[in-house]
């Protein structure tokens, strides 16, 4: 799956440049409309071993619900609607739910061993 390739590439670059020899967890944000979290988890387990430091890295997914917002009155919907039920304006727009982001990874580096304190969150 191409998305997992992108996550792997991002993790590989970050792990290499920070001297992380063993990644324990990768934290990502996924919008409900952007990708299927279950499919991602499945593909992650199948692909992570290609970069040995990621071999045992867990994929921690924060999902963001999809919301549609009326441009005229600001009413919010949890599913697509043809018209705003509050004011009748056409086609409330998708506002959130398309996120796809690698937030951070956690791991052991060759100098300090396992630690996650002291670094910005």
């Amino acid at each position: 799956m191409a998305l997992v390739e992108e996550i792997l590439t991002a993790c590989r670059q970050a792990a290499t440049s920070h001297g992380v020899t063993k990644v324990t967890a990768v934290h990502i944000t996924v919008g409900e409309m952007a990708a299927c979290a279950d499919a991602l988890r499945f593909a992650w387990v199948a692909c992570r071993g290609r970069f040995p430091p990621l071999e045992e890295a867990a994929l921690d997914i924060r999902t963001v619900p999809a919301t549609w917002v009326c441009a005229r009155c600001g009413a919010e919907y949890r599913e697509p609607v043809g018209r705003c039920q509050a004011c009748g304006a056409a086609l409330p727009r998708l506002q959130s739910g398309l996120e796809l982001r690698v937030d951070y990874l956690e791991g052991d580096d060759d100098r300090h061993g396992r630690a996650s304190a002291g670094l910005p969150a």
Partner: peptide
């Protein structure tokens, strides 16, 4: 240690 990426994958997709 913690490595912050804050990397937007959708931009890559675009």
């Amino acid at each position: 240690m913690k490595v912050i990426l804050a990397r937007d994958l959708q931009a890559a997709s675009e």
